[in-house]
Design a binder for these strands. Structure first.
Lengths: 203, 203
DNA sequence: GCGCAAAATTGCGTGCACGCAAAAATATGC
DNA sequence: GCATATTTTTGCGTGCACGCAATTTTGCGC
C-alpha cells in the first residue's frame, strides 16, 4: 500500500507536468508549478525525478521498459534472438496514440526535452539484458549486458537521426537522411547488430 | 592564435582543477576556486566545461578521441576492422602513467567523478565513426555511427564492471566478476561485437 | 598606429538539483 | 488503542549551470 501511494504520486507528477507543459509551453513551467499541481512539495518532486524535463517525458514513455521485456519474452522460442529484439524495440516506437501525438510534437520541438527523450532509451537496457539472459541461458551475463547496451546505443543513434530529419531542416552533416518513418530508421540502425545478436545466440 | 589561447585556458583549467582536487579532496573544491586558480572568471569556467567534474576528469582523459582515431587509422589495411578497433580502444586504457595513477584512484573513489569518467567514453564515438568510414568507404554512414556507438556502449559496460570490482567489495548482482585487469575486461566486453564489425567490413 | 568587426570574457539574475536533519505519515507488535 | 520502528515528506541552505547583455580582447585592412 505504501508502494501504491508512491506510484500514485509519480503518476500525478507526470500528468501534471505534461498538462502544464502543453498548456503554457515547456519553458513557462517551473518545477514549483508541477509540484503544486500535484499537491506535493517542490523538494518531493526531486525525490521522484531528478530533472525538470524527466517528468514531462516520463508521461509519454512510462513503462517502456516493462513493455519491452514482456514483448521479447513473449516471442516464440523458435524465432531468432535478433528478430525478437528488433521487433520488440521497433514496437516501442510504432504507437500513434492520439493524445501522445501533440506531446511528442512538443518534445521534438524543445532541445532539452529532446535530449531527455533520447536519454530515456537507457532505461530499457537492464530489463532487456534480463530478458536476453532468460531467453538464452547459455549467454553469459556480461555479453547480455553488452548486447543490450548496444541495442540502446543503436536506438539512440536512430532517434537522433530522426529528430534531425523532423526538426533540423538544414543537413550540414554528410549523413544520408532517408527521412523515413521512425520505425524504419530504428530497424535500419539495428540491422548492423544482427550478426552480433545471432552469433551470441549460437544460431 | 585565438585558438591557441583557448586551448591554453582549457589546459589551465584542467590542470588547476586536478591539482586542487588532489590537494584538498574533490569535495572541497568549488568551481570558483578552479576558476581563480586558472586566472579566469567563474562564468568563463562554464564556457569550457559544463560541470564541475568535467575539468578534473578531462585532465586525465584529454585527447583520447584524437588518439583513438589516429590509432585506428594507423593499423595496416590488412588487419580486420574488429582487430583494429578493439586494439585501439584497449590501448586507451592500458597506460599506467605515474602521476595519473593517484588521479585515477581519486576518480574511482568518488561517485560523481566515476560517473563523469564513464561518460567521457562518449567522446570517442564521433571520431571513431569517421575513422571507420575512412577505413571502409563501402560502409554507409549510419552503420558507421551505429557501430561506433556500440563500441562506446560496450566500453561503458566494461568500465562500470571494472569500477564495481575495484570500489564495490560486495557483489549483490549475479554478474560474474572476473576481477581481471581493465584491458582484459574491455576486450571481453568488445568481443561480442566482433561479428557485427567484421560483417559490416565485408570480411 | 587606427578604427572596426568578430569573438571571447565577464557580471548578473534565475531556476534548479540535492545533502541534511527535522517533522509527518505509515506499518508492526502487543 | 497504543507505543514504536521505518519510511516518506518537507524546509532550508548551498553550489551550480546557463541565458543574456554589456564589456573587453583579438584579428585585420589600411
Amino acid at each position: 500500500m505504501r508502494e501504491r501511494k508512491k506510484q500514485a504520486t509519480r503518476e500525478a507528477l507526470r500528468t501534471a507536468a505534461l498538462r502544464l507543459a502543453l498548456e503554457r509551453g515547456p519553458d513557462n513551467v517551473r518545477v514549483d508549478d508541477i509540484a503544486e499541481a500535484a499537491g506535493v512539495s517542490p523538494r518531493t518532486y526531486n525525490n521522484y525525478f531528478s530533472s525538470r524535463e524527466q517528468a514531462i517525458v516520463a508521461a509519454v514513455t512510462a513503462d517502456r521498459a516493462a513493455h519491452l521485456a514482456a514483448t521479447v519474452a513473449a516471442r516464440p522460442a523458435d524465432v531468432g534472438l535478433s528478430d525478437a529484439v528488433i521487433d520488440a524495440v521497433v514496437g516501442l516506437y510504432t504507437s500513434s496514440d492520439d493524445h501522445r501525438r501533440d506531446a511528442l510534437l512538443m518534445i521534438t520541438s524543445n532541445p532539452a526535452l529532446r535530449a531527455c527523450y533520447v536519454d530515456v532509451v537507457t532505461t530499457i537496457e537492464d530489463p532487456l539484458a534480463d530478458a536476453i539472459a532468460e531467453r538464452h541461458p547459455e549467454i553469459d551475463l556480461l555479453t547480455a549486458h553488452v548486447l543490450s547496451a548496444c541495442v540502446g546505443a543503436a536506438a539512440k543513434v536512430a532517434l537522433r537521426q530522426w529528430l534531425r530529419s523532423v526538426s533540423g531542416p538544414a543537413t550540414p552533416s554528410g549523413l544520408v537522411v532517408p527521412s523515413g518513418s521512425l520505425p524504419d530508421i530504428i530497424r535500419a540502425a539495428l540491422t548492423p547488430l544482427v550478426p552480433a545478436l545471432d552469433a551470441a545466440a549460437g544460431s
